[in-house]
């Protein structure tokens, strides 16, 4: 009899499908039993997986918060265009639409003369001299304006060049770009550098945590290497050996994901008021709610995925018996 026929003999009593169903049931049952019996080892795995998931969630929130802060700064240093007194609302509206179509422009806000005056009065409420001066002047001395926000310093430059063109000189009194050009350039340079450093640090710490988690999983499986060897010597297939460890990985990953999710909900909920105050408006809980699927993907898929992959990789080393 040839060796190729050996497998057929071991399966003679059952159909292939029946064997697969039985095998899957046994793998799940064995995995669940082993999880229960090795709760100490699995607790360590759950702990490090939770730490890993929380780190990646933290990086996700830091990314959201830094984007919010950079956008806030960019809005503050955007281009303000002031129009001549006799410019009609239609001309301003037409220019506003044209600017909004320019590449890189993210926001264009129109502030009418009346709105500008109202805001000026609000800002100087209680300053009698200024308010009396306004009364003496009689007419509204303030100009209508549009505030432009763009996504890069080069976008700002091209918008500023467009606005400085001769065709707009008839309606534009002045714009702030000449004063803020250097600030815009510096801000975007800092933004780029900070994002680059953030990415490198995120990857670095992510890698460290992944290595720590994998080492913990490998160590817990290393203690069972003799058992794995015996299973192989008895004739167990690689899946029969690896399967229960992967089931344990799924359980550890799921529990770590649930713990991480609860901690994220609690932390974002209670930290939101402080973070809003510090950042000037960034709501952690609001960001969490609006990115719920992304957070769930990081936590559930990350936890279960890492649990399965790390266990499968750690067992692989001991299957060559």
């Amino acid at each position: 009899m040839k060796m190729a026929q050996l497998c057929a003999i071991s399966k003679k009593a059952n159909s292939y499908f029946k064997i697969m169903v039985t095998l899957t049931k046994r793998i799940i049952k064995t995995g669940l039993t082993a999880f229960q019996r090795q709760l100490g080892l699995n607790s360590a795995t759950i702990f490090v997986l939770t730490a890993m998931i929380l780190l990646f969630t933290f990086i996700f929130f830091v990314d959201g918060m830094s984007n919010f802060l950079f956008n806030s700064f960019q809005e503050k240093v955007g281009i303000s265009v002031y129009f001549k007194q006799d410019t009609s609302a239609e001309d301003i509206s037409a220019l506003k639409e044209e600017v909004a179509q320019k590449p890189g422009v993210t926001k264009v806000v129109y502030v009418s003369k009346e709105e500008a005056l109202e805001k000026f009065k609000q800002n100087h409420l209680g300053d009698d001299i200024i308010l009396k001066t306004l009364e003496i002047v009689g007419d509204n001395p303030l100009a209508a304006e549009i505030k432009i926000t763009a996504d890069s310093d080069s976008s700002y430059k091209s918008v500023a060049e467009f606005l400085a063109g001769e065709e707009n000189s008839a309606i534009i009194q002045r714009m702030s770009y000449q004063k803020t050009e250097e600030i815009i350039k510096k801000l975007f340079a800092i933004t780029r550098e900070v994002k680059k450093i953030g990415l490198i640090m995120g990857l670095f710490f992510g890698l460290i945590v992944v290595v720590i988690v994998f080492s913990t999983v490998r160590l817990s499986i290393h203690t069972l290497r003799e058992e794995i060897g015996v299973m192989k010597l008895v004739g167990a297939s690689n899946w029969m050996v690896r399967g229960p460890f992967m089931v344990q990985g799924i359980l550890c990953g799921s529990i770590a994901a649930v713990i991480s999710l609860i901690l994220t909900i609690v932390t974002t909920y209670f930290a939101t008021p402080s973070v809003v105050t510090i950042t000037g408006g960034f709501s952690l809980f609001g960001y969490f709610s609006s990115n719920l699927w992304a957070v769930l993907a990081i936590q559930i898929l990350g936890g279960i995925g890492m649990g399965i992959i790390f266990n499968a990789l750690a067992v692989k080393k001991y299957l060559k018996v």
Binding site: M3, L6, S10, E227, K232, G235
Partner: peptide
């Protein structure tokens, strides 16, 4: 190959000097 080795071992019953039981 590995699959054939598993099948070969399933046709053998081995009693090891050091028992080799699965402790879990």
């Amino acid at each position: 190959n590995m699959t054939e080795l598993n099948c070969f071992r399933r046709r053998i019953g081995t009693i090891f000097q050091d028992y080799r039981l699965i402790h879990t």
